[in-house]
Amino acid sequence: MGVEQKLGNMGVVTTTLENVVNWSRTNAMWPMLFGLACCAIEMMSAQAAHYDMSRFGMELMRASPRQSDLMIVAGRVSKKMGPVLRRLYDQMPEPKWVIAMGDCASCGGVFNNYAIYQGVDEVVPVDVYVAGCPPRPEALIHGVLTVYEKVKGDTFKDLAKR
């Protein structure tokens, strides 16, 4: 930035406010505890001791949408659940992100029928799709890290537009 060279070794770092805000968002992202079906069990595995998602600042699953900023749609979304899912999404405070976890949430998966939405992107806007039926916990963690990459690129201007 230019200031560092002049200040030398004084323990001062300069950056933009955007970077600081985005950095802090990625390190304390609270996902919503929103299990629908099979993928929810793998999400629980990702939370548990073996895979330990809290390494990435995600040890807190919030049951209330008002306290969370990441929605992990873990499982198939039925026609009866769709409106409920939308309401939960609307209740989350901005800024918010959505991961479609698993094939069913991404594109309907094996259930190409009357009861299931062919992709949760028909209900809420999705940021990251994670493939797999169900995805392994590593895949979910990779999806979360991909969201972080996206968050790091956010600008205040983009967020204001939303």
Binding site: R76, S78, K80, N112, N113, Y114, A115
Partner: peptide, 24 residues
């Protein structure tokens, strides 16, 4: 809220292929 239509969907598949539905 999680009605998936598995029973109906299995009718549209052969006996072997319907098995993947039972996992879920």
């Amino acid at each position: 809220f999680l009605h998936t239509g598995i029973e109906k969907n299995m009718e549209a598949k052969t006996y072997q292929k319907a098995e993947v539905m039972t996992d879920r």
